[in-house]
């Protein structure tokens, strides 16, 4: 069958957008009514989705492979942790600082990208990822060192204006994460359609050609790393509020970076919803493989599933879903607009 063509800006398009938003809102509301531990799981999924979206900006759209994003995640988490525990700040107020610090770190990590490329750049990001837990352990007066930093539940109480109590902090964080995820997705979408977004994709596809065409590589790379780090740092900040127990070797090692990369590619790199799908996969796949078989067998199955995805669904689940939907409905730009990238 021929797909239905919908022009952007038309009434049908608006209708689709509103239907999409309504569906998302419905799903969120449904999630909020589940048992507390499911709400927690979904919150974790949303936090992961934000983190993977951050990685998507650098690795998916700009082609700068980063195996050190666990450092941004950790920096965001520890910023919130230290501010709440040592300085008694209210958790929500720590978010801007966490995001800012991660943006700065991202910018700094982006600087070597000017000279170093490809797998060699991945090594630089590896260095950052490996250094983070060690630095946290070194400065234990600030971070609690290897023992970790524990944020007690009363310090994570929802703000007074919500009328929620400490035991209800789970549902509060659920909605905050949902809002943060929504904002992140909107931001990513607008970014990828902007000039910077086109520059990012040009850099990924062929850096030299991009430079020859006038893309300022230095600006693009450092800005992208800064933004990428900032978004993953936001996720880290929320993560600290979710888990309350930060440990450098428990949650912020290279293995976390591997989880993020896995989620990105399972979900679909350089797609908007890929990170969300990937987050679901990364959080729930271990449950499935553990149900099928316990212990080491689940590890074997997990590895096998990853390989299968690469062979059967290389654009990730979101990519496949996008192509499938594309058979029924296509959104084309309005006649008066330029081509979308």
């Amino acid at each position: 069958m021929t797909p239905i063509h919908v022009r952007t800006g038309s009434a049908a398009h608006r209708g689709l957008q509103i239907a999409g938003l309504a569906a998302a809102a419905g799903a969120l509301l449904l999630g909020a009514t589940m048992e507390a531990f499911r709400v927690g799981q979904l919150t974790n999924v949303m936090i992961f989705a934000i983190a993977i979206s951050g990685l998507n900006l650098a690795t998916g759209y700009t082609g700068l492979l980063s195996i050190g994003h666990s450092a941004f995640f950790g920096l965001g988490a520890y910023t919130t942790g230290v501010m709440v525990v040592t300085y008694g700040a209210a958790p929500m107020t720590t978010i801007p600082l966490a995001v800012l610090l991660c943006a700065v770190l991202g910018f700094v990590v982006g600087l070597p990208a000017l000279r170093i490329r490809g797998l060699y750049l991945a090594l630089v990001t590896l260095a950052v990822g490996v250094a983070f837990p060690e630095v946290v352990r070194r400065f234990e007066d600030l971070t609690g060192g290897a023992a970790g930093l524990v944020i007690r539940s009363r310090q994570l109480a929802p703000p007074e204006w919500t009328g929620l109590t400490v035991p209800q902090r789970g549902i509060w964080l659920y909605w905050v994460s949902a809002a943060a995820l929504l904002i992140t997705l909107v931001l990513v979408r607008n970014l990828t359609r902007s000039r910077l977004g086109i520059a990012m994709i040009a850099t990924r596809d062929n850096e030299i050609a991009a430079a020859a065409s006038g893309v300022r590589l230095a600006t693009v790379k450092t800005t992208v790393f800064g933004l990428s780090g900032a978004v993953t740092g936001l996720a880290g900040s929320l993560f600290a509020m979710y888990v309350g127990a930060l440990s450098p070797d428990g949650s912020f090692t290279l293995l976390k970076s591997i989880e993020l990369i896995t989620g990105l590619f399972l979900g679909g790199a350089a797609t908007l919803f890929g990170p969300v799908v990937g987050a679901f996969a990364v959080v729930y796949l271990p449950y499935f493989t553990a149900d099928l078989a316990s212990g080491h067998v689940s590890g074997v199955i997990f590895g096998a599933v990853l390989i299968a995805i690469v062979f059967l669904m290389p654009e990730g689940i979101a990519g496949v879903a996008g192509r499938f939907l594309g058979r029924f409905i296509r959104i084309a730009p309005h006649e008066n607009q330029g081509e979308r990238p």
């Binding site: 990369i261 896995t262 080491h296 590890g299 074997v300 997990f302 590895g303 990853l306 995805i309 690469v310």
Partner: peptide, 12 residues
Amino acid sequence: IVALGLFTAFNA
């Protein structure tokens, strides 16, 4: 990604 899958699978 295939290498990551092999990494996990061989270890397990």
